[in-house]
Nucleic acid binder design. Sequence first.
DNA 1: CGATAGCTTGAGAGTACTCAAAGTGGGTGG
DNA 2: CCACCCACTTTGAGTACTCTCAAGCTATCG
Lengths: 224, 224
Amino acid sequence: MYVTFPSEIAVKASTAPLASASSKTAEARLKRGAYLYFEGDEVEWLYQVTSGVLRLTKLLADGRRQVIAFGYPGDIVGFPANDLHHTDCEALTEVRLQPFRRSHLESGDGDPALHCALLKAALREISAMQDHFMMLGRKSATEKLASFLCVLSERVGEDLGAYRQINLPMSRADIADFLGLTTETVSRTFTQLRKSKIIAIDNIHTIIIQRPTALMSLAEDGTD
Amino acid sequence: MYVTFPSEIAVKASTAPLASASSKTAEARLKRGAYLYFEGDEVEWLYQVTSGVLRLTKLLADGRRQVIAFGYPGDIVGFPANDLHHTDCEALTEVRLQPFRRSHLESGDGDPALHCALLKAALREISAMQDHFMMLGRKSATEKLASFLCVLSERVGEDLGAYRQINLPMSRADIADFLGLTTETVSRTFTQLRKSKIIAIDNIHTIIIQRPTALMSLAEDGTD
DNA sequence: CGATAGCTTGAGAGTACTCAAAGTGGGTGG
DNA sequence: CCACCCACTTTGAGTACTCTCAAGCTATCG
C-alpha cells in the first residue's frame, strides 16, 4: 500500500484474490513480528496478503530507515529484481498469505491467467509508487499524514455510524519512516488533527475520522 | 533513471538493447521539447531510449510538480497501469527510441524473449523506485544532489583525463522537482560543491567531477 | 505492580523554503 | 553582427517548518 491521493482508482482491483484453482498453494501464516523475507534473500515465492498487515523496509548504512510500503489484504509483495528481494518484510499483525511460485510471474506456462494477474499487479505497483513519489517529494507533514489516513480509511476503514474508524497496527516510527518524517512530527501532527476535531484518537492504534471532508482537503492541498 | 545509491548493480543490464530481430519496429525520433505521451493517454507502445534524454513528470492539482524519472539510453518508459500512461513524458534533447507494442509486455505470444526482457525491466523499475524512496524520504539536499551526480557520472559520464564530465540537459527546476527540493536550494548546493572543489561547473549544463571520492561520501552520508 | 518500550510534549536549532533582486546566456530581430 | 530581450540561474535576507535533544507520560507485558 502506498499513499497517493485520496480516491485512487485501483483499490477494488487490487483487493481481489488472484488464485486460480489450478495454481492454488497452501495458505501461509505469519505471527506478529515474524519476517517473511530479508533484503538480499533469493526470491522463490510471491505472496498476496489475505489478512493482516506487512511492513516492507530498507535500511541505509548509517541506520536511517525507509518504510517502502505496508502490505494490506489484496496487495502482492515479493517482486524480485535480479532474482533477489530488495526489502525486509515483517508481519505487523498475524498475517495470512497466498503464496505463488515466482515462475508464475516469469512465464505463462501452466497458468496464463495467474501470470497475467501478477504482471498487472506489478504494473499497478509501478504506478502507485509514482504517485507516492509526489507525496514524499512535495507534500508537507500535515498533507502526508492526512493522505495516509485517507487512503487507509478507504481501503480498510470501518463504518462507525456517521464516522469512520481505522486501525493502525504500525508504530508512530513506522508511519514516520513511511512518510519521510520523524516520530515527533508524526505525533505532533496527530495531536494537531485531534485538536482541530478532524480525528479522534480512541487509543494509539485506533483513529476515528470525524470530519472526512476536512481530512481530504488537508490531504490535497493542506487547507482546512 | 532513478537516484539510488552510487554503485548500483543493474546499470549494465539496463543499458542493453532489447530488440530481437523478429519484433523490430522502425526507430522513432523526438525533437527537443516534444512530448511522447501525456498522463491519461492510452498506452499502445512502450519505448526503450536509444539516445537522448526524456523527462517523466506528474502534476498536483495546485501546480506542484514531481519529476518521476529521467529516461536515459537503455531505460524503458511507458509501462501501463489500467491501460493508461501515468506521467507526462517530454524530450529534453533530441531523442531516438525503439518502440515495442504493448502486447509484447502483456503476453509472450510471438516473442517470448522480448516479453521476458520487458517484464524484467518492469521488475528492475520497481526495485530502483524503492531505492529512490529512501532518497526522497531520508536524504538531505547535499546528499540528494551528490547522489544524483554520482549516478549520472556512472551511467553517462565521460572520462576527461583524471576527471569525469557529465552533461545535464535538464534545468535546475527539473533537478529540484526530481529530488524534492526548490531550484534555489539546488543552485545553492551546486555552488557549495563548487566552492569545496568537489565539482567544477564548466557551463550550466556541463559539470566536471574533480573529487569523485568526496562526492561519493557526500552521497552516502553527507560527510566530506 | 514495576519495568520498559513507545508516545507525547517542550524548547531550541538548523535546514530548506519564500520572496526578492541581480546576474547570465542563448536566441531573435533589427 | 550586434543589441536587446527573456528565461533561467544565482545570490541574498528573512522566515518557517521540521528536526534534534530532552523530559515526562502512558500503556503494555512480565
